[in-house]
Nucleic acid binder design. Sequence first.
RNA 1: GCCCUGGUAGUAUAGUCCGGCUUAGUAUACGGGCCUGUCGAGCCCGUGACCCGGGUUCAAAUCCCGGCCAGGGCGCCA
Length: 439
Amino acid sequence: MRSRGRERLRRSHLSAEIRPELDGQSVRLLGWVHEIRDLGGIKFILLRDVSGICQVTVKKDALPAEKLRDLEDLGAEDVIYVEGVVKRQPKARLGVEVLLRDYRILARAKRPIPYDVTGKVPASIDTRLDHRILDLRKPENKAIFLIASTVLQAVREFLTDEGFVEVRTPRIIATATEGGAALFEVDYFGRKAFLAQSPQLYKEELTTVFEKVFEIGAFFRAEESHTRRHVSEFTSIDIEAAFMDLYDVMEVLERLIAHVHRRVLEERRKELDILGVRLDVPKTPFNRYTYDELVKELKEMGAEIEWGEDFGTPHLRLLGERHKGYYFITHFPTESKPFYIQPCEDDPRLSESFDLMHDWLELASGGTRISDRSLLEKRLREQGLNPESFKEHLKIYDYGMPIHAGWGLGFERLLMVLTGRSNIREVILFPRDKFRLIP
RNA sequence: GCCCUGGUAGUAUAGUCCGGCUUAGUAUACGGGCCUGUCGAGCCCGUGACCCGGGUUCAAAUCCCGGCCAGGGCGCCA
């Protein structure tokens, strides 16, 4: 019985596949009721599935009375199975509709549904996140995550083709990896442990095995940040490669960004249209500016900044007005960077570091890493960290540590750029920040 | 953590300055009715709200204080 029922309810087409060329063909559809417009003798049901929305038309004189009665009760977000015939229809916006022959209501939605999926009335980001599953059913929000899926796929295919090995490092760690950023503490069988804020040290160690590694994963920062570009749980795309320096990995990064643009344009044109985003493949190589140059530039613009000071948000906003799109900032002061960044040989006050920017938004950060144990220990001490608590990491440097370099790219920030969204929470399915732990 | 702004039906808003003209207005959603080409459907009717606590006052959505919540910014960062 059960399996026969399932057999009947297979769909023959997705809503996006209902095209005028199918005129006259019988089709079976499955989906959610997006909207109903009832004109009395004729009723229009907009049926939404993963591919989009199509119009199902009900001429009331063409259905038996008892079928019609149930249909009168159909509401928004009900799940429905539809059998019908495709009709080329110049009067319909898409030029095509499905004339309903039979149907089954598979699941009812509560009425009134607590959130407007059709988007007739705007909703604040807080309300949207409170009803996130319904919010995601809006075509424009769904489009963001269809693009996200393509981006992840594109990143994996690009890095794999470049000879990088995908790895996974622990989320639960014993000590802070970089000092600085606040970590979430967890109770690990009665011992104190932390949620990882970065795969940094593990990925460096792994270059001595796989040479080129990458990881796509969630990391955690217990910062008090309250901005549109910070959350407590975010996704980082990280690479690390032996026998490379900052210029090598910058080149990998800009080619990756270009590749991602190409793939999104190839596969998600419809979603970009829904979002109203015009995307161009950025020209490589991206512009490169040194920290020194930009400090000079900022001073010329009248900004207050001392050499050695890291750029603050107001500085970056100023720079973003002058430098549009993707660009690199290189050679930051060693002091402003984490302990593992390689100081320049000719001027140790500067480091072999870089950030990838888009306008004023920081997307990625990376550089050449220190490969000499004694220098690394010296840098740890200079940053007020205790080498003793890094001994598990430091011992790797005794087993043959070549020069290596890498970067970490904020996946959601890249997605903000690609989808034209200004709040990082919009591009995370279920965002976590200081104030939000549900849904 | 600090600073700024805000909290009115399910949602989004008007009203708040300058307290009373308010049975708190509008849109949308929802319920009922009319409607055979809608696509922001239309028209008619209806249900539905002043964040919580204290204070000032004859009178508080409106002014004051505290709390909670939210949005944004800063620091920090991806």
